[in-house]
């Protein structure tokens, strides 16, 4: 019943834009009516150029996310277990964490040059911190008796991490993953817009520079769709995995 209501406003806005454009002259170097943007979306979808850009953006995003996310996970588990280590590193972490990831774009470009690696490095930096912080807090909140049981059973540290910590912290880790994935996509597109000549962000800049606004809007819509779809898919996965536990935290949307 309420589903259709969400689509009314965007459709009305699109119709309004179409009418405004048609009555207001019709040609522009910076704007395009929705009808031409839709045609352009179909064109870039069928000629394969959008697929190439999407593959590049998603590929670097996943690689960066894997690097930063798993790094943060490992570091977060270590810090979650050791009070000593946590106290020792907190100041350093608090100094490094607020550095805006885009500030590292010039540095990454200097070190790696154009290509996948500079983008992956910045994405890894950006996703490392939320992954670290959320993993650490997830580990700290694990029922202490579970750890005691594991110690009684003489589990090794690795076994404790694998058999107790990861399953117990899984719902929170899933939330961390959703957050980090959202960040990774934003940073990937940003890196491509600012400096790295590949992927969807670069497609956007090229469309702008070559005065093809319909193409620009088509790619922009596609980027929005990717972000929205990725978030919806991860939320669905989360609900499906942890529905029985009833502890899915949907308040943190990316």
């Amino acid at each position: 019943m309420t589903r259709w209501r969400g689509i009314v406003v965007p459709l009305a806005l699109l119709a309004l834009a179409e009418v405004a454009f048609r009555t207001g002259g019709g040609t522009s170097d910076s704007l395009a009516p929705p009808s031409r943007a839709i045609a352009a979306l179909w064109a870039v979808l069928t000629d394969g150029s959008l697929i190439v850009g999407t593959a590049q953006t998603l590929g670097t995003m996943l690689a960066g996310l894997a690097l930063g996310g798993l790094g943060g996970l490992a570091a977060g588990i270590a810090l979650g277990f050791s009070d000593l280590l946590r106290r020792f590193t907190f100041l350093t972490i608090e100094m490094l964490r607020p550095i805006p990831s885009v500030a590292l774009l010039p540095l990454s470009l200097l070190v790696f040059g154009f290509g996948h690696r500079m983008e992956i490095a910045v994405i890894a930096f950006a996703t490392f911190w939320p992954s670290l912080i959320l993993t650490q807090s997830a580990v700290v909140q694990i029922e202490p008796r579970l750890i005691e049981v594991a110690r009684m059973l003489r589990f090794t540290r690795l076994q404790i991490a694998w058999k107790i910590v990861l399953p117990a912290a899984a719902p929170r880790l899933m939330t961390a993953l959703r957050l980090a994935a959202g960040l990774a996509l934003v940073v990937a597109v940003t890196a491509e817009i600012v400096s790295n000549p590949q992927g969807l962000g670069h497609d956007l800049m090229i469309a702008q520079e070559t005065l093809r606004p319909e193409r620009m809007f088509a790619v922009l819509f596609w980027v929005g769709l990717l972000g929205w779809g990725k978030n919806a898919a991860l939320l669905a996965l989360e609900r499906w995995l942890f529905a029985c536990r009833g502890e899915v935290d949907t308040s943190i949307a990316t």
Partner: peptide
Amino acid sequence: AFARSLPASAVIPIAIS
């Protein structure tokens, strides 16, 4: 929610033009 999931930097090309 859709507008929010859009990377804000992606509107820069539109703003420039």
